[in-house]
Nucleic acid binder design. Sequence first.
DNA 1: GCTTGACAGATTGTCTGATAAGCGGTCAAT
DNA 2: ATTGACCGCTTATCAGACAATCTGTCAAGC
Lengths: 226, 226
Amino acid sequence: MAEDDSDLNVTRETTSLRQLVENRLRSAIGSGRFKPGQRLIERELCEQTGVGRTSIREALRQLEAEGLVTTIPHRGPVVSTITANEAAQLYDLRGLLEGYAGRECARRRDPAIIARLRKQFVRMGEVAGEQDRSNLLAAKTEFYAALLEGCGNAFVERFLKMLLNRVTVLRMTSMTQANRIGNSLSEIENILTAIENGDEEAAERACVLHIRNAAKVALEALARSE
Amino acid sequence: MAEDDSDLNVTRETTSLRQLVENRLRSAIGSGRFKPGQRLIERELCEQTGVGRTSIREALRQLEAEGLVTTIPHRGPVVSTITANEAAQLYDLRGLLEGYAGRECARRRDPAIIARLRKQFVRMGEVAGEQDRSNLLAAKTEFYAALLEGCGNAFVERFLKMLLNRVTVLRMTSMTQANRIGNSLSEIENILTAIENGDEEAAERACVLHIRNAAKVALEALARSE
DNA sequence: GCTTGACAGATTGTCTGATAAGCGGTCAAT
DNA sequence: ATTGACCGCTTATCAGACAATCTGTCAAGC
């Protein structure tokens, strides 16, 4: 267990092609470059990425397992769509898991995690006024990442990451992040202070409330768009 | 929505080969035919299943995404092992999710689900005395399946299925199902009656308690085996 | 004896090309 | 308007090939 900070751990960046493709596709879907419902034709992906069909197909299988794409037999993969009903379930579960994560963060009070959370919160405040929302979104993403890692449960972390990917796609469907993102700042502050104070109950409640509010906005927008 | 029970919905049996392979491998792992830590060599799997490498590999990618196998670069896939620490996290999350499932079952009180639960519970009682535990295990599996479906949340259902698969592998690691399975009958009865009564709190508590007890036994056995 | 370096075998990672099968749309015939 | 045959597109799956890389071994050197 002799791990000092002089990190010799060389994690090779040369990941497998499949892995790269997987990440590329994931972010392409998350960013809206591939829209929900859109067909993803293997041959086209081959041309666009420059890799063989093998790697494309295997990457697609993983995304399929994550629920990000749905494969229709003999028709091919499409970017997963989501119904209002499923979206509600998604947010329900997210609330449950993120509540757990918040609670655990508050219980553990890992200084490193808290520092990361606070840093991102501060950054959110700084960039909240900007026209371009991408900085704010980035800070928020980082905040969540810290929250997930902080809960100390790899399974929760993994599942929440999956759910977040799906939520991102949902945003693409219903085009609803701009207004909401500002309002949620105070909610996030509540989460942060509860964690800093080690108040498990409050942290859980704050997380759940935060997700509930997000869910409300998203579901309304989704209903409107149908 | 005119769906009567004369079900014309012909869902093709002829699933894809990849799907079949995936299920085969999953159950081979779940049944202990492939043991944790064991290497799974593609070519051997090809010979054993009689399908090409493509299908094998794609099936492996899905199992990898589920966490059931771990692929070591340029070395190949192995059946995932699990540390005591991870196992504790696994059970924590399972408690959380199954608690939710129990609560939701109690809230919804779907008669069809309740009937299934009760049926399996009765069956458990009938076969509890048998020397061969497989009937009991089957009933328990069915009971869980009904509980998961009954919660009405596809995401919860899916995640819990993943976790259950991992737990099954864990059993293979620590060889500990025989004694426990009998003791849990009364716990299961508590779950069932709480759901039948529509008592959400009690259902959640009963589920969580059930998992906690299961976790304790499993973790002790796991610790002993290390 | 222990470390180092080189070598060989095993296995995956990836590509290519080929064939069969299934889905969806078109279009003529009834 | 419905039916049925036809056709193109795309996947599903296979076989074979080659490079990259991991692992273990074994001899050489200190």
